[in-house]
């Protein structure tokens, strides 16, 4: 290696905030991948300076200074209304509500439902890792039947606790025309990034609510090694949570 050779730099999205990397998420955490997909989508759309990123409480709060984008930390479940407030006040901003399954499907479910029904022109990115990571791995609305968590030590019993929330299916059913709804997975990065990009484009076009659930991984609380981590995501989760687009706006040809 000669001295003249430029120092090799990691290939991070331009919209990642570099000075606090490595980030605070655990080894193997899916948030890094989702935020990489989001970062690249922001870069490709050139919206770094007019995006506002809001993060929930739970592991997603660790993303509060993740991006080189104006960002705000809210309360558990309340990111959607904060982003709605910003968007309604300043429609020119591109608002991104970033949350986990607990924030979007449990404590803040009414906000998810009603923002979808009102077709709020915001983008929600919801990371589904089937448990409450930050608080130590309790059952989440998305915990799979039989899955062991700290509060379902014998496995989730749907008779007792119901079945996992299928978020995009629900949102697609209640959102009106103009909404964009998809479920991606960190196991298919390119597709996930494509979904997130479309969701942002949908907001930029002012068509309506856009919602992407990202199937993600939580090796720390799942207590899985790398192989089992991928296996749980790809074999178990996708069985219950099909990946794909659930609602795509009909864009009229000019």
């Amino acid at each position: 290696m000669s001295a003249a050779q430029p120092v090799i730099q990691p290939k991070m999205p331009k919209s990642w905030y570099k000075s606090n990397k490595p980030h605070l998420f655990c080894p193997g955490c899916g948030h890094g991948m989702v935020l990489k997909a989001l970062g690249e989508a922001i870069d490709e759309l050139g919206i770094q300076s007019k995006a506002v990123f809001g993060c929930d409480i739970g592991c997603s709060l660790l993303a509060w200074n993740f991006l080189d984008v104006d960002s705000t930390q809210t309360h558990h479940g309340r990111t959607t209304p904060v982003m709605v407030g910003i968007k309604r006040s300043r429609p020119e901003l591109i608002t991104i509500a970033y949350m986990g399954d607990g924030g979007g499907y449990a404590i803040g479910s009414q906000h998810t439902v009603n923002a979808a029904i009102r077709n709020e022109k915001i983008t929600v990115i919801l990371v589904n890792n089937t448990n409450y990571g930050m608080t130590g791995g309790q059952m989440a609305p998305t915990t799979l039947p039989g899955q062991i968590t700290e509060t379902t030590p014998f496995g989730r019993d749907p008779e007792e606790t119901g079945y996992p929330t299928r978020g995009p299916e629900m949102v697609a059913a209640i959102a009106s025309e103009g909404a964009y709804v998809a479920r991606g997975t960190v196991a298919n990065f390119r597709q996930l990034k494509g979904f997130i990009k479309k969701a942002l484009e949908n907001q930029i076009a002012g068509r309506g609510f856009s919602f992407v659930e990202a199937l993600s991984v939580c090796p720390t609380n799942w207590r899985t090694n790398a192989r089992d981590t991928w296996a749980f995501l790809e074999d178990k989760m996708t069985q219950y949570f099909p990946v794909g687009e659930f609602k795509v706006p009909q864009v009229k040809e000019e």
Partner: peptide, 17 residues
């Protein structure tokens, strides 16, 4: 192949893929 040791947390997800 370049690996930035200050960023690698050793999760092994890459290894499996």
């Amino acid at each position: 192949f370049h690996l930035f040791t200050n960023l690698c947390k050793g999760c092994g997800l890459c290894k499996e893929k």
